[in-house]
Write a protein that binds this DNA or RNA. Sequence first.
DNA 1: GTATATGCAAACCGTTTGCATGGCT
DNA 2: AGCCATGCAAACGGTTTGCATATAC
Lengths: 122, 122
Amino acid sequence: MRPTRQRLALAALLVGDGGNRHVTAESLYAAAAAEGEKVSLATVYNTLRAFCDAGLMTEITVDAARSYFDTRTDDHPHFFWEDSQTLCDAPAEQLDIRSLPKAPDGAEVARVDVVIRLRRRS
Amino acid sequence: MRPTRQRLALAALLVGDGGNRHVTAESLYAAAAAEGEKVSLATVYNTLRAFCDAGLMTEITVDAARSYFDTRTDDHPHFFWEDSQTLCDAPAEQLDIRSLPKAPDGAEVARVDVVIRLRRRS
DNA sequence: GTATATGCAAACCGTTTGCATGGCT
DNA sequence: AGCCATGCAAACGGTTTGCATATAC
């Protein structure tokens, strides 16, 4: 993968702020624009996809309307705030799964997604 | 909610075959058409949404491209076959979660989604 | 110089909505 | 009669794609 100016800029944004970012294409596009980086939305999509294909980040499916991307690539749980549509990491060490439904014959587990949907307490 | 012909037909399809169906709008639309039921795709969407609002079924978010609906309303784990894009229930009794990341202050857990993504073993 | 990434706009696809028609009570 | 569901088609929004241009090596 070629280290072009746009890719480096997007990568810097993703790694910056201490890493562990959860972005949507729109939010990353906005962040790039805020820094004065000239990147098109299509390139943001293409780049996010390229990073995912390269194993540098993963796509998290929590909302049918929008795709979220996570800079962490290991399997870990997430909090999803339903009111603000915000995604963030949940402390993995507080999750204790003692047993998992065993995969049917001929199947192997690719990933286990755990999404804890949160509502603001009334 | 009014028991109209279309809604009864869709409900029958969802309850039929022993219940516990996982459908997309398209698949339910196709199933209705296969039975000779005249329903428009928009009505299928509206009806699925109405059933969800009424608490008769739930929407499961596993794939950004498509919405899946489940006739079971309790919180239970799912298998998702990545190759065929198929969703089905995973045996809940085989899932043993001893502890869950505790919700941040001011938040309560609305639901915990557990999706086990499966790949056909090579 | 050559291959490949970019940018734009147009295509795409699942989903939603507006509005006129039709059915239930 | 009145209310509300239906159906169609057009709108919608996020994502992808085609193609000409620009850029990295």
